[in-house]
Simulated assay, not measured.
Amino acid sequence: MKSAQADRLRAFVEKEARALGFDAVAVASAERAPSRAVELGHFLKEGRHGSMQWMEETADRRAHPRDLWPQARSVIMLGMNYGPDENPLEILERRDRAAISVYARNRDYHDVIKGRLKQLAGKLAARTGEDVKVFVDTAPVMEKPLAREAGLGWQGKHTNLVSREYGSWLFLGSVFTTAELAPDAPEHDHCGSCRACLDICPTRAFPAPYQIDARRCISYLTIENKGPIPREFRVPMGNRIYGCDDCLAACPWNKFAQGAAEAKLQAREDLKEPPLSALLELDDAGFRALFSGSPVKRIGRDRFIRNVLIAAGNSGEASLVDPCRRLAEDDAPLVRGAAVWALSRLLDDKAFRAIETRLRPQETDAQVQTEWDGRS
């Protein structure tokens, strides 16, 4: 009888989840530890998390669902398809345009998914009287290993979840509950000998299959990194100004994924291929207005303009010299330094030295001075 009740409850959860717009629904037992806890420990020991200190601080709670919530009995893993309708790598050839990662071209997915998770959790609590907790990315939950345990997919060689139905394009969220639901079988690895995601990475961020060094990842460099972009990664960044889709887009399993069906997950037209020239003109108010409700807003105007300036330096576009020159006098040292690098790439030596003669004597920031010294 107990098993039959768990099965019925499982069917109820799937029906309600799909009604809320989730494309993938599966359940893992909270008694099973995720399979990647050892790998996480190695990742942290090697310092591959970079400045993301919170990963180290919360490592103990990530190791097992019950370390986060001892009373949990089941974990409902949910996925929402955000597969793009076009090849997101085509924009990389348009160097006067900015490449923004597919997931960040509309509303913050945390907001989209969390509201729906709360609705699902509320329905489950009302039906069972059991306790529930919802998590989307920001909590110490090993979502991808748990999704694998629940059968949604497997962690590919790029360390992201891969689904046989949706490829590498799934947003993940979870509902922990004290209710007992019938669990699904774990998914197996189906990557085989494929290396597409590893070979396409422009910064060689994968030390080995199934391992990532965040310090070399363009997503980390453009989003989490608060300082200047390290020189060795600037040219490989190309025109990627927020995140990087290369390893995701290269996955052959994407051929089974369809574009996101709901308008809330469709890319905003103005963020599909915005011109660098327009982005370089953004002040703080303009930045906040353009990216209101977007995850891009979280990095702030200065880091964002830093990224756009790297793209400008890689563009070869003489028309971007004037905005870069103006930004070399910006209030933020982070912006000034990136502007100096962009100018060093766009100008010949004589023109660059003329600007240096005017601006460098008034520069007080050591890192910006280093950029003036760095022209090669």
Results as ranks from 00 to 15, higher is better:
250 A>S: 11
6 A>F: 00
29 S>R: 15
108 D>E: 05
9 L>G: 07
367 Q>C: 02
104 A>L: 11
284 D>L: 15
137 D>I: 13
194 C>N: 05
285 A>K: 13
186 P>M: 05
214 A>P: 06
118 K>D: 10
232 E>M: 13
149 E>Q: 08
324 C>K: 10
375 R>T: 09
116 R>E: 10
349 D>M: 01
193 S>C: 00
142 M>Q: 13
55 M>D: 03
145 P>Y: 06
312 A>T: 02
122 G>F: 15
299 I>L: 14
113 I>K: 01
279 L>K: 04
111 D>W: 08
89 L>R: 12
281 E>Y: 00
360 R>C: 12
310 I>A: 06
198 L>C: 02
303 R>I: 13
118 K>M: 08
356 E>N: 10
308 V>E: 04
286 G>I: 11
164 R>N: 00
206 F>V: 14
332 A>T: 02
253 W>N: 03
86 E>H: 13
306 R>E: 05
300 G>E: 07
158 H>Y: 03
371 E>L: 01
189 D>I: 14
107 R>K: 14
226 K>T: 04
193 S>E: 08
20 L>P: 08
281 E>N: 03
193 S>H: 09
54 W>I: 02
303 R>D: 08
335 V>K: 06
334 L>F: 02
28 A>G: 11
19 A>R: 14
1 M>D: 07
213 D>K: 11
321 V>Y: 05
1 M>F: 09
49 H>R: 08
247 C>M: 06
123 K>Q: 12
105 R>L: 13
164 R>E: 00
202 P>Q: 08
62 R>K: 15
17 A>P: 14
335 V>Q: 05
207 P>Y: 06
29 S>T: 15
186 P>N: 10
236 P>E: 00
8 R>Q: 13
114 K>N: 12
317 E>P: 00
344 S>Q: 13
225 N>K: 10
373 D>K: 15
122 G>P: 15
215 R>N: 11
271 L>H: 06
49 H>M: 11
22 F>I: 14
172 L>T: 01
265 L>W: 06
215 R>V: 14
172 L>Q: 01
